[in-house]
Amino acid sequence: MKKISAPTTAILDQLSGPVFNPDIFRKAGVFIMRNAIPADAIEQWQASWLEFQATQLKESRDINQANPVALSEQLPPPLATMYRHPVFVDTMRQVLGEHIALYNHRFVIKDRFSTGKVFLHQDSCYHVGNLNKCSLFVPLSNANRDNGGMTFHVGSHQLGFLGDAGEINPTKFDMQWPTVTPELQPGDFVVMHSSLWHESGPNVSGIDRILADTIVQAADDPTGKELLCGQWQTDIFYSPVNYIRYFVNSRVLKIIKYEKERAETLRTGQ
């Protein structure tokens, strides 16, 4: 019979609060900061989002079929740089130390153009560089189970990178991790280790779920985009964009080749 480890179960009631708890985060892989972002910052970001939505997303948006919730359109400056707010840096110092860099910043939304669920996965397998990365999920709307709020498998990051990318089958493991689906409001934000398993259900309420997703890492990682605090701890850098160009042969390149050959076979009937 699969069991939940007692230490993990014991920390479920300690996963959120107005003060970050690095010890709980290390054990759980997730922590929910409550009412931690100043109201003036939230109001500015929400106003910028509403204007952006009305002018750029009213009729349609560029849907990434591989990840429909990921926003592809270019963000206006207030939203494109919101990760620079001191509350995020001050929190991440307790995890990553004094030298912190940006890996990526984007929005993941569930609106009328992308209402479906997101399968259970970990982010580490989609990243380049070192594995010591964390995501900050910042809601500009309420986020809950009804509109596709995120569910976290507490403690699952302790297994590390699982060796492949895609949907995780939790029944194949000898342990079962407890789950939480926190209700988030503007002013809250979630800190998540990039190896933590997470998923989200469909948006059945019709109320948009708007989340900023910022990935940060130690400043010794050669994939850093921007220094957020401290000093660079590396003098070598490379871009994680279109990383398959770094390979002569790989699993991804084989899949691309297979899909092209399959499409050609379907087209020609041969």
Rank of each mutant, 00 (worst) to 15 (best):
K2N: 15
K2P: 14
K3G: 02
K3C: 00
P7Y: 08
T9P: 00
K27H: 12
A28L: 04
I37D: 07
A39K: 14
D40S: 14
D40H: 14
S48R: 06
S48W: 10
S48H: 11
S48Y: 07
Q53N: 10
Q56K: 15
R61T: 00
N64D: 15
P68R: 08
V69C: 02
S72A: 10
S72H: 08
E73P: 02
L75N: 06
L75C: 05
L75R: 03
A80Q: 13
H85K: 08
P86W: 09
T91L: 08
M92D: 00
A101G: 07
Y103H: 12
D123Y: 01
C125K: 08
V128S: 08
G129M: 07
P139Q: 06
A143T: 13
T151F: 07
F161M: 11
E167T: 14
I168W: 05
N169G: 01
K172E: 15
M175T: 15
M192N: 04
S194D: 14
I210V: 15
I210N: 02
D220F: 13
E226C: 07
G230D: 08
Q233V: 02
S239R: 03
N242S: 10
Y243M: 08
R245A: 05
V248Y: 06
A263I: 02
A263W: 05
E264V: 06
T265W: 14
L266N: 13
T268R: 14
